[in-house]
Simulated assay, not measured.
Amino acid sequence: MTTATVPAPSTRADAPSASSAYRLSFGHLLRSEWIKLTTLRSTWWSIGLVALVSIGLSLLMATSLASFAGDVPPMPVVEANRQAVQVVVFSTVLTQLLAMILGTITVTGEYSTGMIRSTLTAAPGRVAALFAKAIVLAVTMFVSSVVVFTAAALVSGPILPTGPLDLGYPDSSVLPVLGAALYLALIAVMGVGVGFIIRNGPGALAAGIGLVFVAPILVMFFPRVESFQWIHDAAGYLPSNAGQSLFMGSPMTGITLEPAPALVTVLAWTAVVIAGGIAVLKTRDA
């Protein structure tokens, strides 16, 4: 009688090598998320709407200011830059909603189609897939926002009575615009976190829009009296109010924060929401 032996897996010619070119890496996850993001029509619709709204509102504000040009006294360069920046980035009041929507649908879209199962099968650690999605979306939103704001500045600058942005003073021209682009990128990342927490498209959109748009408006219903002052103080730390303090100099509601605390506040909100997304992703089935 003979005994058949099976070679050890490590000696088989077809056994995968630890150094195989097809081994999953974080770079591969980034490439996968980039392909998924750029092949969605909703991505390009969202970016197109951001561009249309941003440039359109900048033109509208610049034209309105130009109509009162005779009544505007000469301004110092820093003040003129501040006005030009407000014209360029004013659209973030609306485009932050599109950034949040884009962030949520990149996640909830996978849950609705079942693609999330393939994603998590390829990346069983799960957290790496979340970070890859957030990084790709953040970079895309930041770069596209910089391009859109640049176009808005070029179009509105010649119309403004105080002239276009003076780049010789970057603290009052370049940095606020970059701050606005960074804010939109972080809002999109928050959308990713909200999407993983709620996993339902309409529910995630409602939660995200409520956080960045509705919550600051609700503060307006509280009078500025001593008994409600704590609400107005706390409102300055809402994501959208902190973001507006960062790049516009004053928020819709609440107290005004200095640039550094404002940036830390937006980063903290992003970290908390992403941490919530990680917790749900790690503890619940797809």
Rank of each mutant, 00 (worst) to 15 (best):
L167F: 15
R224N: 10
A268T: 14
I274S: 06
P261S: 08
M61I: 15
P176W: 03
L154A: 08
E110G: 12
A286C: 07
A271Q: 06
G191K: 01
A268M: 03
G191F: 02
A84H: 01
G201C: 07
L167R: 06
L184D: 11
V87N: 01
T256V: 13
H232Y: 00
A132R: 11
A215E: 03
T106K: 01
G254C: 05
I55L: 02
I105W: 01
M115Q: 14
L94H: 00
V194M: 08
V194T: 13
A99Y: 02
G203W: 00
L97D: 01
L246G: 08
V219K: 05
A80H: 06
L120F: 15
N200M: 08
S240Y: 03
A66P: 02
D71R: 10
I209E: 09
R126H: 00
M61Y: 15
R126G: 09
L40G: 04
L98E: 01
S156N: 01
V78H: 14
V107Q: 04
I55F: 02
P161Y: 10
G277E: 04
L263T: 09
E33Q: 15
H232D: 05
L218A: 11
W45M: 12
A62I: 08
L98H: 01
Q244G: 10
P7D: 14
L186F: 13
I47V: 14
P76Y: 11
V139L: 13
I197P: 07
V194G: 08
V78K: 14
F228V: 04
T283Q: 13
V139T: 12
P7Q: 09
M100F: 01
A80C: 05
A13T: 12
G203E: 02
E33S: 13
I101F: 14
V264M: 12
G70Y: 00
N81Q: 11
N81T: 09
Y169C: 04
S245V: 00
T256L: 10
W44C: 02
S156H: 05
V89T: 15
G191M: 01
